[in-house]
Amino acid sequence: MADSEVLRAPHVLEYPYVRSVGPVIGAFLTGLRDGRILGAQSRDAQGKATVIVPPTEYDPVTSADVGALVEVGQSGVVTTWSWAPEPKKDQPLDRPFAWVLVRLDGATTAMLHVVDAGSLDAMSSGMRVTARWRPAAERVGRVQDIECFVPEAANP
């Protein structure tokens, strides 16, 4: 049989998953909807106090239950970044943007999000960025309620 006779067809795997989130993630998402960013108090392997943002239900390293939730800053430091010149389907922005790990003021860990910086040249590790929120009416309790981060100087 010639290769051309082998049958091929498109196949779609699609489902509208709806997930229950439990108390910790639920509180974080509720906070986002209300315009606040929450972290979870925890302790690292050496017993030093930490704040996990976004809050996982269990400490990322020690696996202990996390403690109380606390509000952290809406600005922070980029710990590392990458520049996406061609955004892909369903990604947070539809123009070139930076993926970042951003450590918010008051947090110990960094969260994955994006920075709308205009150009690669505007990005550097250690730069300060601040959250740009979607309008309150559009926020539903998901990470994209923060539309993106922007360089702090550009949004004082």
């Binding site: 892909k88 389907k89 994006v114 990470v143």
Partner: peptide, 13 residues
């Protein structure tokens, strides 16, 4: 699936 996957970051990013 709650914090990262919904933003569809690709492996290259």
């Amino acid at each position: 699936p709650y914090y990262m996957a919904p933003m569809w970051p690709d492996p290259v990013a």
